[in-house]
């Protein structure tokens, strides 16, 4: 299930927030192959990732989300707010 990514609205491209469900992740490393700036293997099979990817990595991250064999990667949804909507 490929998840659309926030930031498409009228050029307001923001960094992509992401999280990996590491219970589900089986360390196949497809993501590390497709988006090496964001996902790296640490030791033999522990995945380390950057929870915030820059604009430059956006395409890569989307490809990684789609390629993960166990759908472990979640990124901002297309209509997600960038942040809370009201002031503190």
């Amino acid at each position: 299930m490929a998840v659309p990514v926030a930031g498409d609205v009228e050029g307001t491209r923001v960094p992509v927030r992401l999280v990996v469900d590491l219970n589900r992740c089986e360390g196949y490393a497809q993501c590390a192959f497709l988006a090496p700036d964001v996902f790296t293997m640490h030791g033999e099979e522990a995945l380390m990732y950057s929870p915030r990817a820059g604009q430059a990595q956006r395409e890569q991250v989307i490809r990684a989300v789609a390629a993960c064999p166990v759908q472990a990667i979640t990124v901002d949804g297309a209509d997600a707010e960038e942040t809370r909507t009201d002031a503190r």
């Binding site: 926030a6 927030r17 915030r52 901002d76 949804g77 809370r84 503190r88």
Partner: peptide, 22 residues
């Protein structure tokens, strides 16, 4: 490798919530 304030969770969708943080 990651700054502590760079660990915000992604939002799966729009919430239209009222937030009272802090």
């Amino acid at each position: 490798r990651t700054a502590a304030d760079d660990t915000e969770l992604p939002r799966r969708r729009r919430l239209d919530a009222r937030w009272r943080l802090g």
